[in-house]
């Protein structure tokens, strides 16, 4: 197990390195650069070359990349290319807490909603409650979160003249107000995630419901609740764990949309702004941070497998 974890941890920086290289190339290939964002349109385009020089964009791409990489290895994430050119680390520090909070809340809501729905749907398969829950989950999976988010904003205004968007307040400032703000984006992201989890839980449970050992458990006279939770649910957890881990990627991606719709100053919104302005030091930092989070979560999920299923060995 220890060797496995070490191997995975060693592979992480290499994967991040490859990702940063590919990402940088993609940004470089795209027409335009951060200087265009600085000159703010064709009005001041006469200043483009000056700004390219000022921002170091006149250098060959590999010089720009390795310069950035060298600084990162020394713990310096660089400065944003967009004036007033604040350090990237400051920008990230200012916002990362908001995104992590939304992410954690999303996972929590997703698990709280998704698991019971999946279990109920499996236990009461082909009943009215099963159909209703499955309809809800299919809506959750098929409807994109930007659309749900937009509806959550538009319809309350139309019906009640009320808007869920409030001026942002951090958790440390006022936890209750903060939760009343982040609950909406978290709920929207959680809806899709929970729907997916519920579908997987249902199908996984149905696969083991009629297996021999479950029949044996029933034959021993165990109560149905014990059969379901101890024998069926636990066995079906492995695919569920995988899905929850993978959902994190979707949640981080969804944060871009959710934060922009709900005006929450998080990493997602920062990435959106930075992609639009081709601010590559910020884009690379945010994407690599997201990737790092994703890798750590998937590693944690892999480790959790051994707890859920003792037969699994690394």
């Amino acid at each position: 197990m220890r060797n496995y974890i070490i191997r995975r941890l060693v592979a992480m920086p290499l994967m991040l390195l490859v990702m940063s290289f590919v990402l940088f190339l993609l940004l470089w290939i795209k027409p335009g650069d951060a200087a265009f964002a600085v000159v703010a349109g064709i009005e001041e385009a006469r200043n483009l070359d000056v700004w390219r020089e000022e921002l170091g964009l006149d250098r060959p791409w590999y010089v720009q990349y390795f310069d950035w990489l060298g600084n990162v290895f020394q713990g310096d994430l660089g400065d944003s290319l967009r004036p007033p050119r604040n350090p990237v680390a400051d920008k990230v520090q200012e916002r990362i807490g908001n995104t992590i909070e939304i992410g954690l809340l999303t996972i929590a809501i997703s698990a709280i909603i998704g698991l019971p729905i999946g279990i109920i749907s499996a236990i009461r398969r082909n009943t009215l409650s099963d159909y209703t829950l499955r309809t809800a989950t299919i809506v959750g999976i098929s409807v994109p979160n930007f659309w749900t988010g937009t509806l959550i904003i538009i319809f309350p205004v139309i019906w009640w003249g009320w808007n869920p968007i409030q001026p942002y307040t951090s958790f440390t400032e006022d936890p209750l107000t903060n939760l009343s703000i982040v609950i909406f984006p978290a709920a929207i992201l959680a809806y899709g995630s929970a729907a997916y989890t519920a579908r997987i839980v249902r199908s996984s449970m149905l696969e083991v419901f009629f297996s021999d050992y479950v029949r044996t458990a029933r034959a021993k006279g165990l109560r149905e609740r014990v059969v379901v939770m101890r024998h069926v649910f636990r066995t079906s957890l492995i695919p569920v764990l995988t899905v929850i881990g993978l959902q994190l990627g979707a949640i981080l991606g969804g944060a871009v949309v959710a934060e922009s719709i709900f005006a929450i100053p998080g990493m997602g919104l920062l990435m959106l702004e930075s992609v639009q302005t081709e601010d590559y030091p910020v884009v690379l930092t945010v994407v690599l941070l997201f990737a790092l989070m994703f890798m750590i979560i998937t590693l944690a999920v892999d480790v959790l497998y051994t707890t859920v299923d003792p037969r699994i060995r690394y």
Binding site: I154, P156, G161, W162, N163, I165, S260, I261, P265, L272
Partner: peptide
């Protein structure tokens, strides 16, 4: 306020 999305801004206007 910084609001990245037009729809959000418009809904804020509509809700007063």
């Amino acid at each position: 306020r910084i609001v990245a999305d037009n729809v959000t801004a418009r809904s804020l206007l509509e809700s007063g």
